[in-house]
Amino acid sequence: MKILILKLGYSETLDPEMGKIVSLGDVVRCTVILEALKNKYKDANITWLISQEAFPLIVDNPHINRILIWDEFVPFALMREQFDMVVNLEKIHGVCALADMIQAWEKVGFRFDVLSGDYSAYEKSKSATSYIAQKASGEIQHKIWQQVLVEMVGCEWRGQEYSLGYSPTTKERVQVGLNYQVGSKWPTKAMKNEKWDALAKMLENNNISYSYQQGMQNLYDYMDWISGCDVLVSHDSLGAHLALAMKKSVIILFGATTGEEIYYYNRGISIYPKVKKVAYECLPCYNPTCIKNIHCMDFIDLDDILDNVKGFLKDRND
């Protein structure tokens, strides 16, 4: 079974967003389909087309037989190669058109709509486009992303794990990692630095070792840093998904987005701002720009974070 996965990271798979900035966290989330495909197709030979920026996230992955890095020549070669199955998890129109032109017996994920010039979905994946549209309009309860992705490619959801190929080198071990930065796509996900500093002081007062986020200029260094943390406190970002992939305990802070879409594998918890719904009816807004005078993330309760940190550390020591 020869399978091609198209996932470069230029669009959030199950959100309306599309752009030129690679969403690294979304690439990690999509690795959940690898275990599902390998279990369904025992002889699966998987090729993954990836962006240069996201390559470290799938390098040496045991489920992937071949990695292709996107350039101006690769699409022409793929259009001449035969596959049994194409899995397109990119909504970018050009990639959808490429998926349509690749020779394969079966196709799932997104396709190009020749009438509208927009993305659509192959028949088996139409539930994904319905989910995106309903979620954008606020008409649907949020579903677990991992489950939607697994079912989108025609497999059964069984709690499949994220899959990371790189083996991190732990350079410093601490009890808590403070993953305080966010990507440029979603500045509204961030809790202000003053609150992170206050949290660090609380950890120090409780004799809990911690480290601020490191390695952001190099993905390998970043993964090495996460590997040295017992518990990661993070915004809704790449680090949170990497920590889950490494089977770390994770505390994720939410405001503009929601944790209802994340399956934690019994290793994590979501923390939300303590605000009155009537005053912050916009939550979750999925908007990179905040319309409120006081940002929702200013209402994150640091005591909640500390209590959960202690709980996770206790579980690790028992």
Rank of each mutant, 00 (worst) to 15 (best):
M191R: 01
I300P: 08
F254A: 04
G109E: 13
W196T: 01
R267V: 00
R80H: 01
W196L: 03
E151P: 08
Y10Q: 11
K107F: 07
E139D: 13
L306P: 11
I132V: 12
E35L: 01
L98Y: 14
L199N: 04
I50N: 05
T129R: 09
N205S: 13
R173Q: 14
G259F: 04
C30F: 04
N39G: 09
K38N: 09
G177P: 11
G19Y: 07
K38F: 07
V74M: 07
S11N: 14
G268V: 00
Q52H: 15
K126G: 00
S51V: 04
W225V: 05
G138R: 15
R173I: 08
A77L: 11
S127A: 09
T258V: 02
L232C: 05
Q141A: 12
I144V: 13
M297V: 01
A128I: 05
Q214L: 06
L199Q: 05
Y162D: 08
E72R: 10
V114P: 09
C229W: 13
E194P: 01
T257R: 05
I92R: 12
S163D: 10
E281V: 10
H142K: 02
S234I: 02
C96L: 07
K124F: 11
M85P: 08
E106D: 08
D298F: 02
L98Q: 13
P288E: 15
W186G: 07
F254M: 04
R316L: 11
L242W: 03
L98R: 11
Y212A: 05
P273F: 06
L164R: 04
E151V: 01
K314C: 12
K40H: 10
V250C: 03
E261R: 07
V108K: 00
K20Q: 10
N193L: 12
D298Q: 09
A256W: 01
H63N: 11
M202W: 00
F55H: 11
N218A: 07
G268T: 02
Y180T: 05
A36S: 13
D60G: 00
Y210D: 15
S116Y: 03
K20E: 15
G228P: 03
K276Q: 09
I208W: 00
D304L: 07
H93P: 15
K248Q: 07
V250T: 03
V114Y: 15
A240K: 07
E17D: 14
S125E: 12
L164V: 02
L199Y: 04
W105C: 08
G268N: 08
L78C: 08
E106S: 11
E151N: 04
K42N: 12
I300A: 07
D221E: 07
E151S: 02
M191D: 06
K171A: 04
S249V: 01
K310W: 06
D318G: 09
Q160I: 01
S167R: 12
D197A: 10
V250A: 03
E161P: 06
S125D: 14
W70H: 04
Y272S: 06
S120N: 13
E139Y: 10
K124G: 10
H63T: 00
A104E: 12
Q147A: 10
Q181G: 12
M79H: 06
W48A: 02
W225T: 06
F55N: 07
Q82I: 13
D304W: 02
N293M: 03
T47G: 10
E161V: 00
V86Q: 07
E81C: 05
L78K: 06
H241G: 01
G25W: 04
G117D: 05
F312Q: 04
T188H: 13
D315V: 10
P273W: 06
N207I: 02
N179G: 10
H63F: 12
M191E: 02
